[in-house]
Nucleic acid binder design. Sequence first.
DNA 1: CTGAAAGCGCTTACAG
DNA 2: CTGAAAGCGCTTACAG
Lengths: 330, 330
Amino acid sequence: MATIRDVAKSAGVSVATVSRVLNKKGYVSKESEKAVMSAIASLNYEPNSVARTLNNKSSSMIGLVVPDITNPFFPELARAIEDVANIYGYTVVLCNTDEEVKKEKQYLHALKQKYIDGIILTTSSLSDEDYSKLNIPIVALDRVIDDKTPSVFSDNKKGGEMATEHLIANGCKYLAHIRGPIGVGPADDRYEGFVETAEKFNVPYIVVNADFHLDRSREVAEELLRNHPNIDGIFASSDVAAAGVMKAAHSVGRLIPENLNVIGFDGIPMGTMLTPALTTVKQPIYDMGALATRLLIKQVEKTRLDTYHYKLETKLVVRETTKNLEVSHE
Amino acid sequence: MATIRDVAKSAGVSVATVSRVLNKKGYVSKESEKAVMSAIASLNYEPNSVARTLNNKSSSMIGLVVPDITNPFFPELARAIEDVANIYGYTVVLCNTDEEVKKEKQYLHALKQKYIDGIILTTSSLSDEDYSKLNIPIVALDRVIDDKTPSVFSDNKKGGEMATEHLIANGCKYLAHIRGPIGVGPADDRYEGFVETAEKFNVPYIVVNADFHLDRSREVAEELLRNHPNIDGIFASSDVAAAGVMKAAHSVGRLIPENLNVIGFDGIPMGTMLTPALTTVKQPIYDMGALATRLLIKQVEKTRLDTYHYKLETKLVVRETTKNLEVSHE
DNA sequence: CTGAAAGCGCTTACAG
DNA sequence: CTGAAAGCGCTTACAG
């Protein structure tokens, strides 16, 4: 492969001059530029990015840290991130941490060694100072780390309210919430939205704890439905949990939506694949990923951010697991 | 950050000696080694991987090229790849190509610039020579590129046979196959397995063309079920397509599995989330990814491969969308 | 067993 | 506007 020396020689100039035209930096006479350009073309020269990285301490790579790409919430996020990274000439390194501190540390470390330019964190097992000690631009996605770290997340509380209002508007008289993991910000916010709305409208409700996973949600939902057969509206804290609720309803012989409304949260593609298709509160997943990446790149390129925290709107997507129970009773 | 010079100075040796202990290469006296080790520890020194890469022309990174990580077949593959890459000290760069030649070329190019050590391809839009010209170790995953490129894939034909046999064993008298995209190897093989088995057992069948996507599969399945109401067993070429079939069945009022058996292919997690849970032919997705990565790393580290092409077994996973129709009629 | 030196392929003050 | 030289932080013949 041709190097910058080869180009310099072939163009009859110094490597410094070649470097200048490569980077469009500093003065270069028209003639020199021409000579360099044609040398580059004829030698099929491409600057070596590793050598550049070593000098610039910048690799044009960003790291994406997720708990587990297998969780259906993340692929779309990853796609968005990669898409906009690609537009700006960055490449993305994928890291699954399983929320393990050790793995996360190890990855952040490895990324730093590689002069990674920035990191998008969708998990945060470490302490704030661990992150700031890293001294690499970070954007928090689907969570908030601290005030100084830019973050992108959706309005989970309002989403919880929307879900609950929808159930109530549909005539549900006894609500339940399959709550996500306690202590996880988005899950807590959705819970709050649920509780406040149910109370605001004076509708009785029950909350049961689960995680975001299918099996656990299914179990608790089944028990819930058996013990409280008059529940007629369930808000699950994630779409996957809602799928578990649907299975539970099937087990106990409840018909969705005819005598049980179910609504999820997230808006992942799986929801459309269910039968009946899942009504949900959709987060703008792709937009979240895209925005986070833009913010990160801005930081990398030292552009001042005007806003640090972006709360994006969620949207009610009515599909087939909810319907107006009063109308249907007629 | 401390550099190798700092360590050398602090240990009272030359950088060459430090480098030797770092790489466990060449002779170093016990004493020098000790001095270096403690200098490393006290300075908290870590070798700079970019500088190493520049020298070694090896980055300890591998590229993963997928059409779209959002396709639910890929996250598990990506996870497996990242897991084993991590074990061997490699990091993975994610590239979505949308099967576009231009994007793929651009990525392969960028990866090469970064001295990427190897590439796993789950797509192959380019010509064989484009790949060999790259001159980077490659492993083909879920497809075959050519004889000299190691590949990992599952036994799609046999999988198709298993699916079909299962339907027949369940007493299905009139079969249909929702075929995947024509010309895509795995889809073609599943199709062949279906046709041969149906003919072998002399069971009438219909094949309709679709892609691997939900909507198209749903459409063709709905039309199929309307026009041929006596179809009682459908083999869909992917789990996502099977989800489409389930929606179609629901639309036309067919009950699964009571009077329509449905079986998918892939074994992605979504299948378990459906109600009823999807019977499927499971590919060993994680194992495929893991094996491909091991093969790639072997090549990178110049270990001779004894086998180039690995065809892995698929497995029938009976869940809730199939049951013996004859028994149920009693 | 060890060090001085060249080299990986760039970038960037500095002097002119 | 341009080039010689130092430097980014390592590795690796080579000579001793």
